[in-house]
């Protein structure tokens, strides 16, 4: 039994090397992420070095900027089905051999490799009142819209640009998932007389379920945490608070307004939103890794 046990935990040299090899990773994560998380939690109960209890949280709940950022987040999350369905549909069509599919696959991913700053800077010009989108709409008889300058369209524009710049990534993930759907089952269904749509909804989409879950989780994490660059360049959070999301508000509070404790409190709200989704992602990943 003790030999068995020794085998499970490795020899002394093995353990020592494992600790040595893991040290750089663990140190970096501890110093820059894990300790700051707990530090931030303590900070959120203080302002300028003074302990103020839960005041920052109470203030956040009453702060219209913060509430607006939460409402914006909920509106953003409400569009999630589009972020999943559109790439899935495109991937299925490409997998089915749509004419030009290989080219589309390569081109769709192009925006995803561009920095959000670059995407934002370009769309900031394209979506201006006198920009090329309005010029193009004029040709087909639609009146010009101030896409980024009016609070009723700014959030929608921001969401559309982010969707545009990331859908190619999801298309790729769905395509790699589709390549694992066994062809013979689909073929057998076809021979049995199942129509295109029946095969799609009864066989292909159900077998994509793990991929759908993965894309939904990754997309949610993406919209919660990787829109800073785009907001910073495209809209600056405005007009008003109409495109302010929590991650951008944290930036504003810690920098321009110099209220680190309050920024830390909002961070904890963002963390609690993140943690749930990230937990799902970690479960999927550790299931796939076989480690």
């Amino acid at each position: 039994m003790s030999a068995q046990r020794r085998k499970a935990i490795g020899s002394k040299a093995e353990r020592r090397f494992a600790a040595l090899f893991l040290l750089p990773s663990l140190l970096l994560l501890l110093i820059f992420r894990i300790i700051p998380l707990f530090w931030g939690f303590t900070l959120s109960f203080s302002e300028n070095g003074e302990w103020i209890g839960a005041d920052n949280y109470v203030r956040a709940v009453g702060d219209t900027n913060f509430r607006d950022s939460i409402v914006n987040t909920l509106l953003l999350l409400a569009t999630l089905p589009i972020w999943v369905m559109l790439p899935m549909l495109l991937a299925i069509l490409i997998h089915q051999g749509v004419p030009g599919g290989k080219l589309y696959r390569a081109v769709y991913f192009l925006p995803a490799v561009l920095s959000s700053v670059i995407v934002g800077a370009i769309f900031n010009i394209v979506l201006r009142y006198d920009g090329s989108l309005n010029a193009a709409l004029k040709v087909i008889g639609i009146d010009a819209v101030d896409w980024l300058g009016s609070s009723s369209t700014a959030l929608g524009s921001l969401i559309a640009v982010q969707l545009w710049s990331t859908f190619g990534m999801s298309v790729l993930i769905f395509l790699s998932g589709l390549s694992t759907v066994p062809d013979d089952i689909v073929e057998a269904a076809r021979i049995d007389g199942a129509r295109f749509w029946q095969r799609l909804f009864l066989i292909v989409i159900p077998s994509l379920r793990p991929i759908i879950e993965f894309v939904a989780v990754v997309t949610t994490i993406g919209v919660l945490t990787s829109m800073f660059g785009l907001i910073y360049v495209l809209t600056g959070g405005g007009p008003g608070t109409s495109t302010t999301l929590p991650e951008f508000l944290i930036w504003l509070e810690q920098g321009r307004l110099n209220r680190p404790g309050y920024a830390a409190a909002i961070s904890m709200f963002l963390f609690s939103m993140m943690a749930g989704v990230a937990y799902l992602q970690i479960r999927i990943m550790s299931r796939n890794a076989n480690v």
């Binding site: 700051p36 530090w39 993140m274 550790s286």
Partner: peptide
């Protein structure tokens, strides 16, 4: 392994202030 994966739950926005202080 789980701790390393779990640190993905902590994006830079969540620790902006303490990270900057660090």
């Amino acid at each position: 392994f789980i701790v390393i994966l779990a640190s993905m739950m902590i994006p830079v926005q969540v620790v902006l202030v303490p990270f900057y202080k660090t």
